[in-house]
Design a protein around this nucleic acid. Structure first.
Length: 764
DNA sequence: GAGTTTGAAACT
DNA sequence: CAGTTTCAAACTC
């Protein structure tokens, strides 16, 4: 269900990757009283990976306030209710102060805001009991609703709208009635009167796509902060898990806040990127007494703020969602803790970056639970990518942007009545455990590049629809291998992968066609089967294979070729043992019916690019070597890959460099080949042109007449001339001239003799 | 060509 | 599902 407003859908594709459009008007360092020297988690040089966000002051502010009084108030509320995520960030940080159990307003607004207002223009108010009738308590749903003249912040509880620059937003908090959540957009704080005007002045900066709303999401993360007077601590995985369990038990009763709002702002304040994850549930348990200093909620674990993890882009599983949870307190040393939250079973990994400045920093535990595959989302710029669940969610829409080499996904809420939200900030919301979540973000273009378009034109192999394949026209096919008819192998005349081989069988089918690389997969099983059928003593398992390494197991078999001129012994890779071979193939298919499906094939429906069916699992090669099956197949790594540090994506500079080098090398080879060919041709041409003149009579070249005899005769003439000059006692100069003149006469005689068929004679 | 690295597959 | 083992291709020297 697409709940994105039509105008937003129209505007979205053009704005997807436009980071400039997310320019924040406010100047965080200058305008924010809390930004100076804060919210700078890392100074590492950025790299074009998702984790670059760690080096960027992407900050998530949960419960923050601009003024100490307000912050303290919010903190107090959160502490007393044990349900507030509170943090303070830089000028553009989003402040969220949900107070579930109290009547204190929940406020989201930039730290630069000097006032905490909920009714002024540009303010988003979140109240419980909104349109999103989610059963989960205390879930906050930020939805954009259609603009209505009458819509304002004074709606009935549960439905509050915001009008930043004319756009209305529905912010709904499912919690106790009477609660109010105020989202204050940037530029409305220090400049209350101009906040709306700024939004109008830059309406394109607030184009937002509704995200989240996956009702089918599994509860994935529970963040629980235990505030104490200690320093920032990092919870280990086990600890987090324990917390998670505790959290789950508390969900039904305590009703912890189920959202995390993330706002990502870079140093320049020009690019605001938002990471939205619906997998985090954050909760703060403040065990200490209310203090004036705000409690910092940190979702952190093992990753330092400066750490960078190269993760594969465009991958749903095992990828990272960077969530910056920052809390800053003026006059407090800043601490940054980032940690990856691994989502089990290829789920999301969420990098929760904490940028805390609180002296007694508090830690919010976080953990992960299995969730469905997610999709990397590039939000606002290449350096900040958020991962969203995709595959099974019906609320994900693919967007094909004309002229763009990326596929995009439009994330929309799955619940009815939801709409896009726009609050001038970036929000990451997390759902409660086992509860659906609707996330709306502000100033976020939630378009997701799914699969980078391939620049390399490859032959697209047709995926197999069955385990068997027929003869293919691929050049890699090699072999006609004997095989008995296999029930699993059904011919498919249309879809054949590279390397398909034709195997003539003895049955009705006649042939079993196998991809070349599948033959490799059959090696071991084939070997075992063959060994067993041939009556070897121990024909089971690997032991047999180890004992009989040469039996049916060789490169020839792997390549789909019959053994010929090999050194293998007891070879079954021949026509005489086709029955055994067929059994081996059958055994392999019994074990894995998918074994003969091509690894590289078309993606999902609508995806024209090739993709690896299983995805690679590279760890060290960066997917830029032939170790990587994706790279080897000259395709980009996709969401199915589980590789680490992947650089095999469209925009990877390493990949581009590699491709350029490869192209250059190829061009060089071609040039060299062409040069050699040309030279060879010239030599050959010269030979063909000169040979007739040598062999023919009248056309002989002059040099052909300078035979040994002619040379000797010439030399004798020259010596004779020298002797004569000496006899007459000529000076040396005269003698030399006489010799040269004689040499000239000799040459003239040689030349004159060239046209004669007879051998020239030189007479002095 | 030998040794090392790497990742897939099989196995536990 | 995670860890280990095995293997061969890819890679390096």
């Amino acid at each position: 269900m697409d709940v994105v407003s039509p105008e937003l859908n129209i505007l979205l594709p053009d704005e997807i990757m436009d980071t400039e459009a997310i320019v924040m008007d406010d100047d965080p360092p200058a305008e924010s009283p809390t930004a100076s020297g804060q919210s700078q988690p890392s100074d590492d040089a950025p790299i074009p990976m998702e984790t670059d966000v760690l080096a960027v002051p992407e900050i998530v502010s949960l419960c923050s306030d601009a003024t100490p009084t307000q912050r303290t108030q919010a903190l107090t509320t959160s502490i007393t209710t044990d349900s507030t995520l509170c943090s303070t960030t830089s000028a553009t940080q989003l402040l969220l102060t949900p107070s579930i159990a109290s009547s204190s307003p929940l406020t989201l607004r930039p730290a630069t805001a000097s006032t905490l207002t909920s009714t002024s223009p540009g303010v988003v108010s979140l109240t419980s009991g909104g349109l999103q009738k989610l059963s989960a308590n205390h879930q906050i749903i930020l939805n954009k609703v259609a603009s209505s003249p009458g819509a304002d912040t004074t709606r009935s509880p549960g439905t509050t709208t915001i009008t930043p620059g004319g756009q209305k937003f529905m912010v709904t908090a499912i919690g106790k009635s009477g609660q109010s959540i105020v989202l204050q957009l940037p530029h409305t704080g220090s400049k209350p009167g101009s906040g709306q005007g700024e939004a109008k002045a830059h309406p394109q900066h607030f184009k937002v796509l509704t995200i989240g709303g996956r009702t089918d999401l599994k509860p994935v993360m529970v963040g629980q902060a235990v505030s104490s007077a200690s320093q920032v601590s990092t919870l280990q995985a086990q600890q987090l898990k324990t917390v998670q369990i505790a959290k789950k038990t508390q969900v039904s009763s305590a009703g912890p806040i189920k959202f995390i709002i993330t706002k990502a702002v870079n140093n320049k304040g020009l690019t605001a990127q938002t990471s939205v994850s619906n997998v985090i549930t954050g909760r703060v348990l403040s065990t200490s007494s209310p203090v004036t200093s705000p409690r910092t909620i940190t979702l952190s674990e093992t990753l330092s703020s400066s750490s960078k993890i190269a993760i594969s882009p465009l991958k749903s599983p095992s990828k990272l969602t960077v969530v910056s949870v920052a809390s800053q307190v003026p006059n407090s040393p800043q601490k940054s803790v980032s940690l990856p939250l691994n989502m089990a079973h290829l789920g999301q990994q969420i990098l929760v970056q904490q940028s805390t400045a609180t002296s007694p920093a508090k830690v919010v535990s976080s953990h992960s639970t299995p969730m469905k595959p997610v999709q990397t989302v590039t939000v606002g710029g290449p350096q900040f990518k958020t991962i969203f669940p995709l595959s099974t969610s019906s609320n994900v829409q693919q967007i094909q942007v004309p002229g763009s080499r990326f596929h995009y996904v439009r994330l929309v809420t799955a619940t009815t009545g939801s709409s896009t939200g726009q609050a001038g900030s970036h929000c990451t919301n997390s759902s409660m455990t086992a509860k659906p979540m609707v996330v709306n973000t502000a100033q976020v273009r939630m378009s997701v590049p799914i699969i980078p378009a391939q620049t390399m034109k490859q032959v697209v192999p047709k995926p197999l629809t069955s385990s068997g394949q027929l003869l293919t026209t691929q050049t890699q096919q090699r072999l006609i291998m004997p095989a008995t008819p296999l029930p699993q192998i059904q011919p498919n005349l249309t879809n054949l992968p590279p390397g398909t081989v034709l195997a003539p069988g003895s049955g009705n089918m006649g042939y079993a066609v196998l991809p070349a690389h599948y033959v490799t997969q059959l090696q071991q099983s084939a070997y075992v089967t063959l060994a067993s059928s041939s009556g070897f003593p121990n024909p089971t398992g690997i032991q047999t294979q180890a004992r009989l390494p040469l039996n049916g197991y060789c490169d020839c078999f792997a390549n789909g070729e019959f053994c010929q001129n090999c050194n293998c012994t007891n070879c079954f890779n021949n026509l005489e043992h086709e029955t055994e071979r067929a059994k081996a193939i059958k055994a392999c298919l019994d074990r894995n019916p998918e074994a003969f499906k091509p690894k590289i094939g078309k993606g999902k429906e609508g995806e024209s690019d090739r993709r690896h069916s299983k995805g690679c699992n590279c760890k060290r090669s960066g997917c830029l070597k032939n170790y990587c099956e994706c790279y080897e197949a000259k395709i980009m790594c996709s969401s199915t890959c589980k590789c680490v540090g992947c650089k095999n994506f469209e925009e990877s500079p390493e990949r581009k460099t590699l491709m350029h080098l490869a192209d250059a090398a190829e061009v060089r080879v071609q040039q060299q080949t062409a040069a050699k060919t040309k030279l060879s041709s010239q030599i050959s041409d010269l030979f063909t042109r000169t040979t007739p003149s040598i062999t023919s009579g009248g056309g002989r070249m002059p040099f052909t007449f300078v035979t040994k005899e002619v040379a000797e005769a010439t030399c004798e003439c020259l010596l004779e001339q020298a002797e004569q000059a000496e006899l007459i006692q000529q000076p040396q100069a005269t003698a030399e001239r006489m010799i040269l003149e004689e040499f000239g006469r000799c040459l003239m005689r040689i030349i004159s003799s060239a046209g004669k068929t007879d051998c020239p004679s030189i007479n002095c």
